[in-house]
Write a protein that binds this DNA or RNA. Sequence first.
DNA 1: TAAACTAATGCCTGAGAGGCATTAGAAATT
DNA 2: AATTTCTAATGCCTCTCAGGCATTAGTTTA
Lengths: 307, 307
Amino acid sequence: MELRHLHCFVAVAEELHFGRAAARLHLTQPHLSRQIRSLEVELGVQLFTRTKRQVQLTDAARVFLEDARRLLAQAEQAIQTVKQAARGEVGQLRLSFTGAALHGVVPALIQAFRERYPQVELTLQELCTVEQVEALRLGKVDLGFLHPPLTEQFLRLEPLLSEPLVIALRQDHPLAERSKLPLQALANEPFILHPRPEGPHLYDQFLGLCERAGFRPRVVQEVAMHQTVIGLVAAGIGVALIPASLQELLRSGVVYRAIEGPAPQLPLAAAFRPDQGASVLQVFLKVVREFVPPNLADPAECLPPIE
Amino acid sequence: MELRHLHCFVAVAEELHFGRAAARLHLTQPHLSRQIRSLEVELGVQLFTRTKRQVQLTDAARVFLEDARRLLAQAEQAIQTVKQAARGEVGQLRLSFTGAALHGVVPALIQAFRERYPQVELTLQELCTVEQVEALRLGKVDLGFLHPPLTEQFLRLEPLLSEPLVIALRQDHPLAERSKLPLQALANEPFILHPRPEGPHLYDQFLGLCERAGFRPRVVQEVAMHQTVIGLVAAGIGVALIPASLQELLRSGVVYRAIEGPAPQLPLAAAFRPDQGASVLQVFLKVVREFVPPNLADPAECLPPIE
DNA sequence: TAAACTAATGCCTGAGAGGCATTAGAAATT
DNA sequence: AATTTCTAATGCCTCTCAGGCATTAGTTTA
């Protein structure tokens, strides 16, 4: 039995007339007669009672008709679905992102993609940059939002943006009066930083900028979670560096101040394996590129030299 | 696209090896390669990435695989179902029955059929004999349990049984003391009967028997529903004739007594149109025949002559 | 009785299902 | 580096069957 037979059967069952059914199928009536006959023989079931003048469905055919219609519709649907899948509009995509990426363009980007391609099943996972590189290497993740630069060569990067870090201060801190702070002003402050392994480049970049400003920062606490960092600032343990977009993590008693002069920059990029031809990934990347701010044309910009 | 292509696709997708897949399908590997290629061309979708050495599914193929498996399983199922339907094990059957048939073998018969052929959808409807004949004529009912004889010729009858009628009396009626009553004993009793149009044969049979016993019964009430008849007996309005199997319609204050000598008989038969080839009907009839008591071998027995 | 309608039959053609032998590129082995 | 092995693809063949046209054979209508 082939789908062709089902098409023939449904047409005859609906028209109850071999001639009209054949016209509908763009076949000749004799051929259609034979198709139906061969289907009946194969099934071992009589589907129509035909007199020379009229055609009737048997009870078995009535039962079969429902199944046949459903099968044909589902076959049609399957064809549409696989075409969509080939265009990357159906399927699954495993994403990862750093905690810092959670508060910038990334959520908006993911939401936009979700709306445009609702049939793509997204898996989301928060991982730090190094964990993401490993997950991408192992093929456990298709695309990661992480913070360059990377030493790994097997990943391709799609730079998204580079945002300056700002200083988080307790509200009653003397420096909070000023709207902008040069790094030197922080020479004697106790710092709360992210652990170096979680973002070695940012860590070293900051130390380099401090050195250029003539001091070595006093680190009193190393904490991974941004929430915790800000909590410690609120508790007066020290001051902290926070990506600008994380200022939306409001907390009473904490204020944010921009850094005057060369500020540490936290670049954000989408990383993926170029060898993965997954078309869902390609579609996602197109959306990613829409969200790249125009001033990022030159990726060099997002990584100010630190000497 | 034909089911054949789906079979090929699923085999290759599961084996990830054209040679093994071809063996499974009892095809040659070159032909299978071409089938897959033609499917890909028709869909406009690449399903496999093949190097000379290994075969991999594309993302689109993974999506398609689920649909293809489901389609093949459902096609197989549809074939089984239509075969069952042809054997009369699937489908629908519209039954009708008189009120009297509701209390004898008919419910047990229907239940037995239900258990044996759960995939046949039964429609049940209570109609009197003449209504059933009309419904059968119009094709609104496939089989009816009714009371012969019929004047109509277009129906075939399958006699089921013939049961004697018994007398329903109020418990405190003087005649209730005897265990059997000759008809003559009822010569002066007020009778509650079913209206003649609902069962003309039974009505006339009873009148005939009374006449032979030397009296003409005094009918005080004509009521259709058995429940109501018995209610009237309990109320002391009169005595009534009830099919023996309806004695299970117990009601305090009412007793039943057999008739001595020739008793009116209510024959029950299954009636259907022989021109309806519906195999569900044939299967049902087989069950009906199992429920015919052996002493009914000669259908003449169930209709004692009334002169 | 003739005409119209309609499913089935007979016969033909060409596409393609399916087979066999072989090629060609990759991986494993020597 | 050379050889062998493995495996998908190609070339070419046959023969079935999808599908067409002309016709037949019942049935209904005029």
